[in-house]
Write a protein that binds this DNA or RNA. Structure first.
Lengths: 155, 155
DNA sequence: CTCCAACGTTGGTTCGGCCAACATATCAGG
DNA sequence: CCTGATATGTTGGCCGAACCAACGTTGGAG
């Protein structure tokens, strides 16, 4: 299930909070996460699933550690999510002959198809999320956030 | 304890993610949350504690439900956090004579002092967080996020 | 050959955000 | 006046994202 939380016209938050960037960031992110979760829920997926599928699509077959590093997901969490993806045959996991420590994770055809559905769904979510912003503002926001993200994730 | 996660120069994330606003938002928010949590941890506090103290300082004595509404914190969570704050004498909880369903929560002197410390700490965090942005950009970011937040929280 | 590093895996933890249920108290309508 | 809807505080849960420690296996560099 997924949170409902419709337009509950809440009273204004304290000014001290409303003017604190970190608060603005985490709150808007929370709203974004709600939208994403709600949309992915209909596809029986979560954020981690999409991230891994997207990475696999872009990188091609990769090890679990590599996937985790790319997506900012802990190795241990990658295991669990990959189990779920494999159970749905969206992904295949095979031992790497070249390095027997590794598993080579491969995107299946069904996986690629499912990724597409998720991507389409999420595209619509982005529009809902950014609804009040002009195209220019959307670009600005992306630029600013990218700058922050690059800065805070080791260059 | 608090997550460490220093500048682990991670490999670039998939482009599909890096260009998705909701992803940028949640990721930067995660970094922000780490910084905030780390800073507040030194004061033996969490985000919820700061939010409630800040709201109390701005609203004056208020009921728990009101506080929750203002801060976007669930009633049930307010109870727990208020217990912790009361245990440290940062806050006092008394039954409202005018409406016996309610508790009137009051900020103590120690509470006001502690709020100050937190606010100072968090001010420094904002600077760390926004380090790579010019003053102009910081303003822009604040503006954009505020717009989004207002839009998505019932006007 | 020996260590150390990397990998996958298991089994935890924390924090923010939720929901359901209940008892008590208030309040508005019949 | 009574009765039913509504608000409040409280308890006790749940979930997702993000972490961490530890273990056995495997690889590689010295």
């Amino acid at each position: 299930m997924v949170p409902t939380m419709e337009p509950t016209t809440g009273p204004a938050a304290p000014a001290r909070l409303r003017t604190t960037p970190s608060w603005l960031l985490t709150q808007t992110a929370a709203h974004a996460a709600r939208l994403v979760a709600g949309a992915l829920d209909a596809l029986d997926a979560r954020g981690y699933h999409y991230r891994l599928l997207a990475a696999l699509d872009e990188l091609g077959p990769a090890s679990q550690a590599e996937l985790g590093r790319r997506c900012g997901i802990d190795r241990s969490d990658v295991v669990a999510v990959l189990n779920e993806l494999a159970a749905k045959d969206l992904v295949r996991r095979a031992p790497d002959p070249a390095d027997r420590r590794r598993n080579v994770v491969t995107l299946t055809t069904a996986g690629r198809r499912e990724l597409r559905r998720m991507a389409d769904t999420l595209d619509r979510v982005q529009d809902t999320l950014l609804a009040p912003l002009s195209p220019t503002d959307r670009g600005e926001l992306t630029r600013l956030l990218t700058t922050l993200l690059d800065h805070h994730s080791g260059r």
